[in-house]
Structures are given as C-alpha cells and as structure tokens.
C-alpha cells in the first residue's frame, strides 16, 4: 500500500483516534458523571471541578492538537509498547505496532468478547 499513490491518487485516508474521539464521542463520555470524574484526573488542577470547563477543554483547539499529535504517533506504530503497558492485549498491541487504528480497535473488541 505504500506505493499506492504511484498513479497520482491521494493516499487512502484511514481511521485515526482523532476521527473516533469525535464531538459525538466526547458528548457521550460527558453524560456519565463517573466517566467525567475519571477523565478529570488527567487534566491540570485548574481545569477540574467544573463540567463546563471540562467540556470546553475537550472542544478546545489545544486538545484537538493533542489528538492530532496522538493520531500521528499512533500511525507511526510507536505507541504500541504504551498500549501494551496499559493493559491492552498482545494482539491489540501488535495491531498498534502496525499503526492501523481500525485493526487495533477490532483486536481490542475481540479480546473483550472472549
């Protein structure tokens, strides 16, 4: 697939974490207070404790930039060790090593089915 653009066509766009963590996904996450509490722990103190600040942070250009950065890093395959260390399975980790987010998600879904 690396030389798929040899005929001049743009390389095919694949799903990235930035596509998946969409506004809709974020809205869904913010509906659940338990989830909000979990997510808040990963924000700087100054941005905690206020649902509106949380919402605007997740919709901010700065967070979007972080998502884009994460997506690029995922694509490069170099996040795989991190994914494994966070408890995702080996097969999910292997998918992550290939940089294919969809394959990673499918591997994660398969593992939870078992």
């Amino acid at each position: 697939p690396a030389n798929g653009s040899a005929n001049g066509a743009a390389p095919k766009e694949t799903v990235t974490p930035a596509n998946v963590i969409s506004k809709e996904a974020i809205d869904g996450l913010l509906e659940c207070p338990d989830t909000v509490a979990k997510l808040e722990q990963h924000l700087p103190e100054a941005l905690r404790g206020n649902p509106e600040v949380m919402r605007s942070t997740l919709n901010s250009p700065q967070f979007q930039q972080g998502l884009q950065l994460f997506s690029s890093a995922f694509k490069s395959g170099q996040l795989a060790p991190l994914m494994k260390s966070l408890g995702f399975t080996d097969s999910a980790g292997n998918a992550a090593a290939g940089g294919d987010f969809e394959a990673f998600v499918r591997a994660v879904a398969d593992a939870t089915k078992e």
Binding site: P17, V20, I21, A25, L29, T35, K38, L39, Q41, H42, L43, P44, A46, L47, V53, T57, S60, Q62, F63, G66, L67, L69, F70, L82, L86, G87, V105, V108, A109, T112
Partner: peptide
Amino acid sequence: IENIRRKHNYLPLIMEMLKILS
C-alpha cells in the same frame, strides 16, 4: 486557561478515553 491547556500533555487523558470507550 488557554495557556494551561496548551502546556498540558493529553496522552494519559486520551488513553483513558480509549479505555472507557472500549
């Protein structure tokens, strides 16, 4: 607030989001 957001590393937050969504 924007500068606090700018300086923050969102990696752990995004990982948590993926875990929760999963």
